[in-house]
Design a protein around this nucleic acid. Structure first.
Lengths: 227, 227, 227, 227
DNA sequence: GATGAATGAGAGTTCATTCAT
DNA sequence: GATGAATGAACTCTCATTCAT
């Protein structure tokens, strides 16, 4: 299970994924818990790395700071992760997996396409806010991934966008949405708004995740629906 | 040397030094700016820094690379700019000034609020695409500015958003736009889409800046207009 | 019997030596076989270490690489060998033992001194080529042994040289060889050539071990024989 | 003149060569002078690096030790040399240049081929002893050079060997030397002995460089000359 | 006005070795 | 007998910045 010394990039992000994903979903909006000694070392490292990357950026966060925050030594980090880059890759893997699962469930669910698109839009807003650190990291740090990992993340992201786009296309075919829409542009339009949440949303601000989700979903639906 | 910058940005890097103006106006010999050696040193530094920051990020771009690209020495850079941070600040100043001017002109222009909002939205998309490097840098690198400069940039940005928001509020008061809108959220919604352009837009892609602008503007108007 | 970890270095490398020597002699020219799971763990470790040390040098070979190549874990290595240094020491012991045995047998054999010197010279060339990895390691890595082990190896080496030198002295006394020879220099002269084999000889080159041995032996004899 | 940040391996060792060569030739047998502040920084770095590499090997010598010995900081070293590897490459360049020049001069000189071969052989022994640190480093550390630099050094070395071999071939054609010689093997035979000097020769031993040179030259000539 | 040598702190990474299990 | 998580020190190299010239 440990990923000691992975030189080859070929291996997927599956190494620590089981525990990683579990840890990731419990991380509350805006950061991680104080790293209790209860959770395992790789989970703690991932949690602290996420917090620090969101707080000051990938390049400005030193490996030393991460291990200090997690209460271990550098050697421990490099026992579980091949590189600092690898840590970031795990974070991406976690969030990509989560979002894809949720979108799949919603898109395949009941309701007409308007309802499903509205729900998917609201859900990704809520999830993005609940994992605001991941949201902050996502686009700010993607270009700091190594070329291969970056390509893998982009591919995964594309699949996610395509899934979302297919909802827009479905609505357009059905006559629910306007015929003159460019579905790709709609997706980029909406996800720009979602990623931007990492920049302006504050957990201690006046708006709850649900309020933002409702409004964003509403704006999206109005923008695509047949007048 | 690929310079996707609009050649109209006459403002120079006058921020930190009085000597800048003198150097910047050395358009002697009347030759055209073929290899950049004709333009002044601070302009060249700023242009190359913009290109490099967009290409590989602020932290990943060394001062050495910037001066090498501009064909000068480190001493020259530190003669014109106080620090690497200062270079970035100049880039922000340039883009903020440009956008504010254009928005002011459009908002104060003729036409009803729908027309002016549509035009403002389309214009900021076009401008963002024409200065795609600046767009890429904007949110990716803001947190790498020093605290004071970051605060200054945020304040300027807020003023810009407020100006845009006032258009939404005007439309809502006038009854053009829906009454249940949260104007702040509308602004964040839309500018998320705009900033996201830096991530997905390609100059060699299928869509012209005008096409994207028209569609984004259209989506925004549909999302706010009274049904 | 298991643990040969002793700092005292009384050359108690005898623990695994029986099997080690056997393994060593069967190693074909240029490297070891693919370490099948048939042989014992310490033998496999020694074989892979020899191969890797020859290939990339002692310092550039990590313990991790050795155990991975041998298909065991680090714990296993440290069970059989006191340290990485100890592994190297075993390799030296193996080759020193082998060469000394062969020289002793030849020097004590029949024939006049010219014949015995020629045979000894040819034999050490053949043996050096057949164990080319050991030859490569020998002088390149000796200074990477700890002080005590290094001293022990040097002492053993000196005994070997003295044995060889005594042949030269014998020939000089007998009048077979030139009277103006410095036997020590002759030995250093010749063994320089022998150790150099590790640098230029290629198993897939045009010359067989026997051809090189014949020529080297011939050159040596011509250089010492009374004209 | 400084070689700041040379990433590309393509450039030759010519950067600091003028001063380097001058420094190199004055280095006495067995090591460098105490690094006076009189000589330039790159020369001092090269001198101390040579001494330390010879003393404890390339991998066992840290950059920190080199700069401490030279009385500068790491930054200074990396200002002049692209890498630790680059330092080693400069050392190789220096010795290769020196040896090639001397061999060329001797081979093209007067005297019959026996005299010229004898002189060349004696000269390379003297030179190797006078630059014993370089001799120690040569084969022990060559495989620690990066692939490209290693290839360059090997190519240079080959040219040197070929020049030496041509003397042997000339003597064989002329009838001075035995017809059954393999000139390549003779060269490898002799240079093995020369490189081995770094292992056994001591400046404080009983033999002067000239004595060793005379004897080695004599052994070589006897080994090749027609009986 | 402009240079470029030099700094010094800190970056990410490696590694032989230990030890509780 | 054998494991592999964890250590901690050392490693090479980078970089924004300064300052004597």
């Amino acid at each position: 299970m440990a990923r000691n010394r992975t030189s080859g990039d070929g291996d997927d992000a599956a190494g620590t994924s089981g525990t990683t994903a579990a840890e990731g979903t419990t991380a509350a909006a805006g950061g991680s818990r104080t790293s209790g000694a209860a959770t395992g070392v790789p989970e703690r490292l991932l949690a602290e790395a996420t917090r620090l990357f969101a707080e000051r950026g990938y390049d400005r966060t030193s490996v030393q700071e991460i291990v200090a925050a997690a209460g271990v030594t550098k050697g421990a980090l490099y026992h579980y992760f091949g590189s600092k880059d690898d840590l970031l890759h795990e974070i991406y893997g976690r969030v990509l997996r989560l979002q894809m699962e949720r979108l799949d469930a919603i898109a395949a669910g009941p309701g007409d396409v308007s309802e499903r698109l509205a729900e998917a839009a609201a859900d990704v807003v809520v999830t993005s806010i609940e994992n605001l650190d991941d949201t902050k990291i996502f686009f700010r740090s993607m270009h700091q991934l190594g070329p291969d990992k970056q390509k893998a993340v982009r591919a995964e992201r594309r699949r996610y966008h395509e899934r979302f786009r297919s909802l827009v296309e479905e609505g357009r075919r059905d006559g629910h949405f306007r015929a003159d829409l460019n579905p790709d542009l709609v997706v980029d339009f909406f996800f720009g708004s979602v990623h931007h949440l990492g920049i302006w949303y504050r957990a201690d601000g006046p708006l709850s995740a649900q309020q933002v989700a409702a409004e964003f979903s509403d704006l999206l639906l109005h923008s695509v629906r047949r007048p």
